[in-house]
Computed example of a mutant assay.
Amino acid sequence: MALLFACGGNDKPTAADFESTVSEADAQKIYTMKCALCHGADGKLMISGAPDLTKSTKTFEERVALITYGKGTMPPQKEVLSTAEIKAVAKYIEAFTE
């Protein structure tokens, strides 16, 4: 028994240890459900003052913050999506600017 406790170390798990990864396909589904209505499937639709995502110069971190907390008519997603899902959508949007 003592061996089991001794091998475990003192590292406490963090929230990141429990976040599941989100596939690109799932990120696309989330984007389609949550974002495409205003931004369009290709990021260019621009309804309700939504910016053209193909011309965005925002960093990954700025996109994560914008999706998390919202801005203007864009509602915050922090209560609806997990941190992993928000990051996956922010990463998915990068493809529009390439």
Rank of each mutant, 00 (worst) to 15 (best):
1 M>Y: 10
1 M>V: 02
3 L>N: 01
5 F>C: 13
5 F>H: 12
9 G>Q: 12
10 N>L: 11
10 N>D: 11
11 D>V: 10
12 K>V: 09
12 K>L: 12
17 D>W: 06
18 F>S: 10
21 T>Q: 09
24 E>L: 06
26 D>N: 11
26 D>A: 14
29 K>I: 05
32 T>D: 07
35 C>S: 05
35 C>H: 07
37 L>N: 15
38 C>F: 07
39 H>C: 09
39 H>Y: 09
40 G>A: 04
44 K>I: 09
47 I>H: 13
47 I>K: 15
47 I>C: 08
48 S>I: 02
49 G>H: 11
49 G>I: 07
51 P>D: 02
52 D>Y: 02
52 D>R: 08
55 K>V: 00
56 S>V: 09
56 S>E: 07
60 F>Q: 10
61 E>W: 04
61 E>A: 12
65 A>I: 00
65 A>G: 02
65 A>H: 02
68 T>I: 14
70 G>I: 00
70 G>D: 00
76 P>S: 05
77 Q>W: 08
78 K>S: 12
79 E>G: 12
82 S>A: 01
82 S>I: 00
84 A>G: 03
85 E>W: 01
85 E>L: 08
86 I>R: 03
87 K>P: 04
87 K>G: 01
88 A>S: 05
90 A>N: 03
91 K>Q: 05
94 E>W: 03
96 F>K: 09
96 F>Y: 13
